[in-house]
């Protein structure tokens, strides 16, 4: 009897899901269906229906600020950023290295050459990076094609020279959803007033030793969070002044000095050693 009552519920549930999100291939394991957002466990419904699956960003404050709990796994995300080097890629590198384990990553018209040794240091595989150079009139086509194909885990695109309009952005977003690909769209911050169909928009600015983020728009709740994430210490740590140089003291003394230094809050050094 228990079996009899259980079965119809189960069938009804799957049936409704199939009606709204028809599955192109008939034989999929349950896990695949869940991964592709065509099916979700009912108890997690509240979190996951808002925008589908997400990947942890690698920054705990950012994970908390995003209602999905991380970067979206598919669809368009806009990063509004004007100057290179403020940490706009550092922000997404932990997630990209996760995605890169399964599928390659595409770079469409990057302003500069992605530097393979630098990417390897971030945990990406050099041979799994694809670079697409598309001419202006083919740029959108190439982006849509690459997103829809489902080949790439993520596509990073820059479109400074031909800003796409609302309809084109929507097409890109839909293509990314279809191909289960995360589309990272880097745009200049003057595009901020323009309404965009991308469900996630983030403004990235640089701070002296950190990345300043403003979440302009996101799924599943209010936006407008402002965050400050630390950059890689090795990058911003200015060379220490002379009095902090390692000296030839006995080990016991050195340990004490180190503890003292580590306990101190780090302050920007006003006197870098080398000045040009």
């Amino acid at each position: 009897m228990a079996l009899l009552t259980f079965q119809p519920v189960n069938i009804l549930y799957i049936h409704t899901v199939y009606r709204f999100a028809p599955c192109p291939m008939p034989s999929k394991t349950l896990e695949q269906l869940i991964n592709r957002q065509q099916l979700w466990p009912a108890k997690q419904r509240r979190h996951h229906t808002v925008g589908g699956h997400s990947n942890a960003t690698g920054f705990a404050p950012l994970d908390r600020a995003l209602h999905q709990g991380g970067w979206p796994s598919s669809g368009s995300s806009e990063f509004l950023c004007d100057t290179p080097g403020v940490g706009e890629l550092e922000l997404v590198m932990p997630t990209l290295s996760q995605l890169n384990r399964d599928r390659p990553i595409a770079w469409l018209n990057p302003p500069y050459l992605p530097f393979a040794p630098g990417l390897v240091q971030h945990g990406l595989a050099a041979q799994q990076q694809w670079l697409i150079h598309a001419h202006r009139q083919h740029q959108l086509w190439a982006a849509e094609e690459a997103l829809r194909s489902g080949v790439f885990g993520a596509l990073l695109s820059w479109s400074a020279n031909c800003p796409p309009n609302d309809k084109q952005l929507r097409r890109l977003h839909l293509a990314a959803r279809e191909g289960h690909c995360w589309h990272l769209h880097f745009r200049p911050s003057r595009c901020q007033p323009q309404a965009s169909p991308a469900p996630l928009r983030v403004q990235v600015e640089g701070g002296p030793r950190d990345i300043k983020l403003v979440i302009l728009k996101q799924y599943g709740g209010h936006a407008g969070q402002q965050l400050t994430l630390p950059r890689n210490k090795q990058l911003t740590e200015a060379q220490r002044p002379v009095n902090e140089w390692p000296t030839n003291t006995n080990p016991r003394r050195r340990l004490a000095v180190n503890l003292h230094v580590a306990g101190r809050p780090s302050t920007p050094s006003s006197h870098p050693v080398i000045r040009s």
């Binding site: 050459l113 992605p114 040794p117």
Partner: peptide, 8 residues
Amino acid sequence: LRPCLLLP
């Protein structure tokens, strides 16, 4: 450390 973007 190496940069992510390089000027060719």
